[in-house]
Write a protein that binds this DNA or RNA. Structure first.
Lengths: 245, 245
DNA sequence: TATTCCGATAGTGAC
DNA sequence: GTCACTATCGGAATGAG
């Protein structure tokens, strides 16, 4: 199977459960949620629309081809992907809590110019810490403010925009988006320019470690507060009436 | 010692014999012949003018600064370098015969834009086979027909050219010569374009092996002819008068 | 913007 | 056009049977 069309081959399966569990996380009637084979963050899933009536494989090649179909149908499709993405987000959040003791943000969106020939919606945790995050284009393709990563909610807002804006937006012109991948590296959190990928990766790790530390402290303070409140409640229950706040 | 000025430091020695034998091959009153520290061929020497009255270190920075001095003095300097280069050439030819049993061509010339700050004349065998021959710019800087390598005899001919030609030539404009180093690779022997350095290096090795084979065969034929002639002479001496040719 | 392999290209730092 | 080091950039192939 060529790497260019592997997602399509998944999306064409009439029985998604035949996919190995290392590939498939879950599926619905209209979509699959798979593990990105080269995760660019600790958590990274792809939501694929299934090739199923009324959709053909060609119509599902990418965002542009989807938009070229009936507008209402396109919106319906994206909303169903959104449902699946929200579900994947919850799965990720549970895992975050279980494995790391805290939760951090998750981004949901498309690449303006994908390489693989089947629409895929990224659901990715915002750490961007992964051994597979190797190249400038990898990073820039997920930078949340650069423009190449199209947040799903932004894409959905196109449906409510002026028709002329909609028509321009859905063209996803290469000339507009391709150069973004070559932009200088900058930390999406602190905005600082960073000279190269090794330095950026260290920086992202520090930023995430920092967030982890702060979040865990916050969780711990909350736990303490609740414990205190509980002890006071218990004391109050045992020795007197509740104190006024 | 910075690599930019190391040649100058050699050229300034009042006693060149204090240089290690791994650096110095020989010297005259006006010049040094040193081993190129990064030989781009099997044989590769540099001839340096010594910093010695009437020459100052600044005047000897490069070809341009030399030409800016008195024209007659400049010519005299180049002719003295030529003498040393011819001497180095003979040394190389002896070594070729001793080590390889045949001789091949030697080029004598300057780089139009040198990186090191002291005039140095290259004396280099035309094999261009060396582990130090690594980059396109290395090769192109010695390509005998590309223009970046200025054969000493060509430079000397500038003195006899129209004054306007002379004045233009001695400027050695970067804009003219720099782009030559990025020209596509082509074999200086057979003219074929060659895609990359690894391929070129293999090709140069084959070309040189080929020349070696042919030259050795030629040498052997000559030896045989002389042996035959000698045997016939000897026979003639022993058994009769020389035969007419 | 799938990865991987190979090589060319570009910037730096050397002292 | 000094080198050596690091990283980036640029093309081509990639599968399957």
């Amino acid at each position: 199977m060529s790497s260019l069309t592997i997602l399509r081959s998944y999306a064409q399966k009439s029985n998604p459960d035949s996919l190995p569990s290392s590939v498939l996380l879950s599926h619905s009637d209209t979509s699959l949620t798979i593990f990105d084979a080269y995760p660019k963050s600790i958590f990274h899933f792809l939501i694929l629309p299934r090739v199923k009536a009324p959709w053909t494989a060609n119509e599902l090649t990418g965002l542009s081809s989807v938009f070229k179909c009936d507008k209402a149908r396109a919106k319906e499709l994206l909303l169903s992907l959104k449902d699946e993405a929200d579900s994947a987000r919850k799965t990720i959040q549970d895992e975050m809590q279980k494995r790391y003791g805290f939760k951090w943000d998750i981004w949901i969106g498309f690449h303006a110019i994908p390489s693989m020939e089947h629409l895929h919606l990224h659901v990715i945790s915002n750490d961007l810490c992964s051994p597979r995050m190797k190249l400038k284009k990898h990073y820039n393709s997920f930078h949340p403010k650069l423009g190449f990563f199209l947040h799903l909610n932004d894409v959905l807002s196109w449906f409510d925009a002026e028709p002329s804006y909609f028509e321009t937006a859905i063209q996803l012109k290469k000339a507009k988006y391709e150069p973004l991948l070559k932009e200088p590296l900058s930390c999406w959190r602190c905005g600082r320019d960073i000279a190269n990928m090794p330095t950026l990766k260290s920086h992202l790790q520090v930023e995430w470690d920092d967030e982890a530390r702060k979040e865990k402290a916050r969780v711990e303070r909350k736990r303490k507060r609740e414990e205190d409140a509980n002890r006071i409640d218990t004391q109050n229950t045992l020795i007197g009436p509740p104190t006024k706040k």
